[in-house]
Simulated assay, not measured.
Amino acid sequence: MNANDFFQSLWKSYIEITPQADSVQKLFQGAGEEIINDHVAFRTFANSPIALEKLEPILTQLGYKAYGAFRFENKHLVARCYKHSDTNLPKIFLSELLTHELSEAAQQILDGIIAQIPADAVQSPAVFWGGPLWSKPTLAEYQTLSQESEYAAWLSTIGLKANHFTVSINHLKGFDDIASVNQLLLDKGYTLNTVGGLVKGTPEVFLEQSSTMADKIEFTFADGETQTIPSCFYEFAIRHKQADGTLFDSFIEGNADKIFDSTNQN
């Protein structure tokens, strides 16, 4: 599989539970825009058969190289980013949950989930849209996780999938800044993530980002209880030139920390 086929498969899987992404893309295409994605993000469990270190070789086979590492203390996460020599291909942001930093109650639930993942789960790029490789949690387990880590709760139900694609504002012809993109989305009735403000970041840190709040899906838990839960969201990013004239191509921990909240239940 080549990288273009990889992203086509990812997109198909992504819009199945994120219909807003398809409608947003069509909104921009209707305005004569060609959508180039800045990056795509994934979530996984550390110390598991689908840990970051196990998934990274698949990205390498697709032509990606790691170039940055990040730590999110409050959310108990680490992450790496990857880029391809073809600059029209999205960067990849891969984060993992440090389950050992959570409470014993949360660890017990997550240990049970991770124990179900096949040891040889990572066989091909298809693992990136495989969804949960474990049985559904109960509603009580989900609620226990969400009280401590929205990331853990989300991952327990949605599994390994692209949790967001990101429109590159730099490649849009009719939008010069992130504010005009946000205003279009608000005018069309989309709900945006306001944690830390509509815009995360500033030109001074060379990266500005915003995002919708995740779509919602009906999910039936292992005990038969049904509840509306967050699925995935769509992001928008504009990169600014650094002192040497090159566009900033990495990520900002403070921005990403707030973007993670796009899948919060409330």
Rank of each mutant, 00 (worst) to 15 (best):
S13F: 00
S13G: 09
I17G: 03
P19Y: 08
Q20G: 02
L27N: 03
Q29S: 11
A31Y: 12
A31H: 12
N37D: 12
D38V: 04
H39D: 00
H39Y: 03
F42N: 00
R43M: 00
F45Y: 15
A46V: 05
N47P: 09
L55N: 04
E56F: 05
P57G: 10
T60S: 13
K65P: 00
G68H: 08
R71H: 13
F72I: 06
N74A: 10
V78C: 10
R80K: 14
Y82S: 08
H84R: 04
T87Y: 11
L94P: 03
E96H: 14
L97R: 07
H100S: 14
S103Q: 02
A106W: 10
A106K: 07
G112A: 13
I114A: 10
Q116K: 11
D120E: 14
S124T: 15
V127K: 01
F128M: 10
F128I: 06
G131P: 00
W134Y: 13
S135K: 14
L139N: 10
S146A: 13
S146H: 12
E148S: 07
S149Y: 01
Y151K: 05
Y151Q: 06
A153G: 15
L155R: 08
L155K: 11
S156G: 09
K161E: 09
N163R: 08
F165M: 09
I169V: 15
N170Q: 07
H171W: 08
G174P: 01
F175V: 08
D176G: 14
I178P: 04
V181H: 02
Q183N: 12
L185W: 06
L185V: 07
L186F: 05
D187Y: 04
K188F: 08
Y190I: 05
N193H: 02
T194N: 11
G196S: 01
G197F: 01
K200L: 02
G201P: 01
T202E: 14
E204K: 12
F206V: 00
F206T: 00
L207S: 05
Q209K: 01
S211R: 07
M213S: 08
K216P: 02
I217P: 01
E218R: 13
F219N: 03
F221Y: 03
F221V: 07
Q227G: 06
F233C: 01
Y234T: 15
Y234R: 09
K241Q: 14
A243L: 10
D244Q: 07
T246L: 13
T246M: 09
L247R: 00
D249S: 11
D249W: 01
S250W: 02
A256Y: 01
D257Y: 04
N264Q: 12
